[in-house]
Design a protein around this nucleic acid. Structure first.
Lengths: 143, 143
DNA sequence: GTAATTGCAAAGTATTTGCATTCCA
DNA sequence: TGGAATGCAAATACTTTGCAATTAC
């Protein structure tokens, strides 16, 4: 999976006439070996440990490239921090967000997706993406 | 409806030992007679026309009060602008957002809500709120 | 009268941009 | 070599905060 995504990214870079750089590789490796929902700051801090000379701007720019190449997706959970999540081929899932501890759980539900498309069709919309987030307390935080 | 919400807000203000001010009334009136999904800037500009001396900070603070009182809800559609929408009693709805022209259409679907609760229950979550947004092109923008 | 509210400007966040220097193809 | 990428600092966009003056109860 990691290998595949690296390949996808490098192909994208090449096709766009962009350059493969040491920083991009470092950031890619760090991103791919991180948890699935990473804020930019988290990634930056993680990188800084080993590569103190990588700039914040480079992390921002590189994450946008990841999103453009299709290996990552930009997310907002309303806490004012942009997060990026890994994207697999044609994969889509939604989120359960614990407002207590911040845990994010992914889920998929085909019936919901089908109903969404029906709603959209009823309004003449052509859906490109969607976002479904359920906010509440996870089992642990309910205690 | 407008009358009811004004009442709710005034009751809230009174119960909290806060004060009813000219500015709050002006902002409330402007908010209630606006479209349902209003960015703070839109409301501020609208107000400025008739009341050039109302400050941005007051608008921010007052909108938060509206949300606290239950007559408005804070929303984020990922464009970096916070919006507030009107909230009716116990009402909830989701959104179809046209990425072409920015139109926002509201909808409700009980079956989807039920499925959401099932998903949450399966993960031991207690849901407090949720956000479902479908992004795509409206009928007009598809042409 | 007193505590809350206002309006302004300054301070915070999160993110983007300009630019000289460095690096890759 | 030449255009792209980097790292820094400055700029931007949105929102919050501090504070003296004002206002509501």
């Amino acid at each position: 999976m990691k290998r595949v995504k690296k390949q996808i990214f490098h192909d994208y870079i090449a096709k766009q006439g962009l350059k493969s750089t040491r920083q991009r590789d470092i950031i890619l490796e760090a991103f791919l070996s991180s948890e699935r929902h990473l804020s930019i700051e988290e990634l930056y801090l993680k990188l800084r440990a080993k590569h103190p000379n990588i700039g914040y701007a480079t992390v921002y720019r590189t994450l946008k490239l990841f999103a453009d190449s299709g290996i990552a997706r930009e997310m907002q959970f309303g806490d004012g921090q942009t997060r990026y999540e890994h994207v697999g081929e044609g994969e889509h899932h939604d989120h359960l967000v614990c407002t207590g501890c911040g845990t994010i759980i992914e889920f998929e539900n085909e019936t919901i997706e089908t109903l969404q498309n029906e709603v959209a069709a009823a309004h003449g919309f052509l859906i490109k993406t969607h976002k479904l987030e359920l906010y509440g307390l996870c089992a642990r935080c309910q205690r």
